[in-house]
């Protein structure tokens, strides 16, 4: 059933996102072509500028719509009247959350990939790519300087952290909406309030734990090796814990405290 839920979720979201992503790619192609023709001088140059502005807007719009859609789909499809349809399907509540979560992560990653590809379409020349690879080399070199042999660990942890954070922020939104809607009144305001409270609480807990660990292990807070050794692992474990707590909370509300309007 999860597969079917994902299929329908993809269908419901793709109709907004695919056209937007296509526009972005087409605009990057058009801009690339325009830079090749050096015929735009004087007033004609405004065409080139306009095209570039349109391209930038298309990037911003794609990312913004992706983000808004993640929130809106969860709210509208599960907590509004459509919830009557979704929650009476013969599926588990966890499958409803999973389908939304998986599709949200998919679109987050896709939007990033599309932006990178469109930037490559626009800027990738031999010369530019050389500069790009040089910059990567330099970053790696400075990471090596900073962390010694642990720089691989640093990169690995960084990637893991980005993924964990992506899950965390989506689940934070889901959890806040679910908590807000378990109230009988002011459901939307309660959702925003829940978001603010949970987010702040998470930051404070994280800070306290890191300071506490630094204190008992006696690690020098000035030492840069603290980042891969203490900061990242703690952060990762904590976001893992937060992810699980938020997921279980959302599922519990859906199962036991659902109160559709």
């Amino acid at each position: 059933m999860l597969k079917k839920l994902i299929k329908h979720e993809l269908y419901a979201t793709a109709r907004f996102l695919i056209p937007l992503y296509l526009i972005m790619v087409v605009l990057s192609l058009a801009n690339r072509l325009l830079t090749n023709f050096d015929i735009f001088r004087g007033p004609l140059n405004t065409i080139r500028i306009l095209m570039l502005v349109a391209y930038v807007i298309s990037i911003v719009a794609s990312l913004a719509v992706t983000f808004i859609l993640i929130i809106l789909r969860f709210y509208k499809n599960l907590m509004s009247e459509e919830g009557y349809l979704m929650f009476t399907l013969p599926v588990k509540t966890s499958q409803l959350i999973n389908s939304k979560l998986i599709v949200s992560i998919f679109w987050c990653l896709t939007s990033i990939l599309v932006v990178i590809s469109s930037l490559l379409i626009l800027f990738a020349t031999n010369q530019n790519m050389n500069i790009f690879w040089q910059a990567i080399d330099q970053t790696l070199a400075s990471l090596k300087d900073e962390f010694g042999d642990q720089y691989i660990l640093f990169i690995f942890e960084l990637l893991l952290m980005i993924i964990a954070n992506l899950f965390l922020y989506i689940l934070l939104i889901y959890g806040s909406i679910a908590i807000g809607h378990s109230f009988t009144k002011n459901k939307i305001i309660s959702s925003f309030a829940s978001y603010a409270v949970i987010n702040t609480a998470m930051q404070i807990i994280m800070l306290i734990i890191i300071l506490f660990l630094a204190y008992i292990t006696g690690i020098d807070l000035e030492d840069s090796s603290i980042v891969p050794k203490l900061l990242f692992p703690t952060y990762m474990i904590m976001s893992f814990v937060f992810n699980i707590v938020l997921y279980i909370t959302t599922n519990h509300i859906f199962k036991r405290k659902l109160n559709l309007e």
Binding site: N77, E81, G83, Y84, T88, P90
Partner: peptide
Amino acid sequence: GVESKKIVSYLPEKTYLP
């Protein structure tokens, strides 16, 4: 639950289709 929902057909008082 999941099994009961397979055999119950429900029409809510809301317009619930997307």
